[in-house]
Nucleic acid binder design. Structure first.
Length: 114
DNA sequence: GAGGTGACTGCGA
DNA sequence: CTCGCAGCCACCT
């Protein structure tokens, strides 16, 4: 659905991430796949890095790798921040990994019915 | 302008 | 099972 020219990859990423419901999470790959660049999952991660600097509030803590591992926690203010935020939304984190990850997974491809 | 880096992923050894 | 490598593309030096 995204165009090819005037649409920036990052903008789409922000848009999708912002749509993630509370208590849900998704993966970099899922977003990348939704944007039509399944192999560019790295860019999603980089987008999060940029998003962190934006004024807009983007729930970047709801984006983890495909294993439900909090790989991006190091980029938050504190290492515990990400886990704390997720736990505050009803998720359970153990060993930096989201418990019952699959059950809380939010796939933009499905939820947004691309 | 060129090279290095990275919050990922999938596949092969 | 774990470990390593290649592909991907925007940003930084």
């Amino acid at each position: 659905m995204p165009n090819k020219e005037n649409v920036h990859f990052f903008d789409l990423v922000y848009k999708v991430v912002r749509l993630i419901p509370e208590g849900r999470i998704t993966s970099y790959g899922a977003i990348a796949s939704y944007l039509g660049s399944a192999q560019s999952s790295r860019m999603v991660g980089w987008a999060m890095n940029t998003a962190h600097s934006l004024v807009e509030k983007i729930p970047v803590h709801r984006v983890v790798n495909r294993n439900g591992l909090l790989t991006g926690k190091a980029h938050f203010e504190t290492i515990d921040r990400m886990q704390k935020l997720l736990e505050n939304e009803g998720l359970i984190i153990e060993n930096d990994q989201i418990i019952d990850f699959a059950n809380h997974f939010w796939d933009p491809k499905i939820e947004l019915a691309i």
